[in-house]
Design a protein around this nucleic acid. Structure first.
Length: 303
DNA sequence: GATGAGCGT
């Protein structure tokens, strides 16, 4: 059932190179010669200088995905999650683009890109609804982490959470910041670089610039074990990932697992810390006073 | 050099 619906764009050649994530693929798609440009015509990024911003809100409604008609009784179990979330979209990656990426799977029911209500700009993420959970799962396994057509980044896909975060593990994350990343480092490379030594590595993310689709040169790695996080901070500093040595630092968490608010970054940046210096050996309790310039409040912690 | 983001009608 991987046929395109009538009237759909022709199926692109197996566009995504075989990839680590494809370990569950059954039969490889038949080999084909290099991509024709035509299937991707609609996916070309606009000329940067010719692109007036913020006029996209009034554009015609997005075409529905490729006319896939699904009898209700085939639509999977009620309540089952069959929508994927997609992130790291560049501003020109609209519904048409997503349809062209996925319609050929024959599994897509609808796509939607989220726009800013005021400006109409694409917010950088969207949703893809599938016929069934199985279809969504196939696409997730096949496409996630593979290069996006005409984008410089890889697909970032996940289950749409919709409150039912069934895939969640609620164990806390212990995250580190990793800087000085080479331009070719992907989430997967970063993750595997750490997983080799730290089995509790949960995942890694290289931060992508939404405007260019290119890496910002830093990222984050999450561990399940705090001890492995701490070891990695020292042991992996200066270790090569791809062509450059990584620089590792503590991650400033904007959000904790339980969702409660931490101190906003600005407070940290504008804070001055006074510490009593008369106890270099740290043998007694010392007091740290933080003066928050943004919110002129003194806070005293005993550490 | 740098501290994400990511849940909608």
């Amino acid at each position: 059932m991987m046929q395109p619906a009538p009237g759909a764009v022709p199926p692109p050649p197996p566009p995504m190179a075989a990839h680590q994530y494809q370990y569950q693929q059954q039969a490889p798609p038949q080999q084909q010669p290099p991509p024709q440009p035509s299937p991707y015509m609609m996916m070309m990024p606009p000329q940067p200088q010719a692109q007036p911003p913020a006029m996209w809100a009034t554009q015609a409604a997005a075409p529905q995905a490729a006319g896939v008609a699904v009898p209700p009784q085939q639509q999977g179990q009620p309540g089952e999650i069959r929508t994927l979330w997609i992130g790291d979209l560049q501003y020109w990656m609209d519904e048409t683009y997503l349809n062209t990426c996925f319609a050929h799977t024959g599994e897509v029911v609808a796509v939607k890109v989220i726009r800013n209500k005021q400006t109409g700009q694409i917010e950088g993420y969207g949703f893809i609804e599938f016929i069934s959970r199985a279809g969504a799962e196939r696409v997730l396994q096949t496409f996630n982490g593979t290069p996006m057509p005409n984008g410089e980044q890889n697909f970032r896909l996940n289950w749409a959470s919709f409150g039912a975060g069934e895939k969640r593990d609620d164990t806390p994350d212990h995250t580190i910041f990793v800087g000085d990343l080479a331009a070719d480092v992907t989430d997967y490379m970063l993750q595997e670089t750490f997983r080799a030594r730290y089995p509790s590595t949960k995942g890694a993310k290289v931060v992508i610039d939404r405007l260019t689709g290119r890496t910002k040169g830093y990222g984050f790695v999450r561990f399940g074990d705090e001890s492995e996080q701490l070891r990695a901070m020292t042991e992996m500093n200066g270790v090569f990932c791809s062509t450059r040595p990584m620089r590792i630092g503590p991650a400033t968490n904007k959000k904790t697992v339980s969702g409660q608010q931490q101190y906003p970054k600005a407070s940290y940046q504008n804070s001055q810390v006074a510490q009593s210096d008369d106890d270099p050996n740290n043998t007694t309790v010392s007091t740290v006073v933080i003066f928050n310039i943004k919110n002129p409040v003194f806070q005293t912690f005993v550490i």
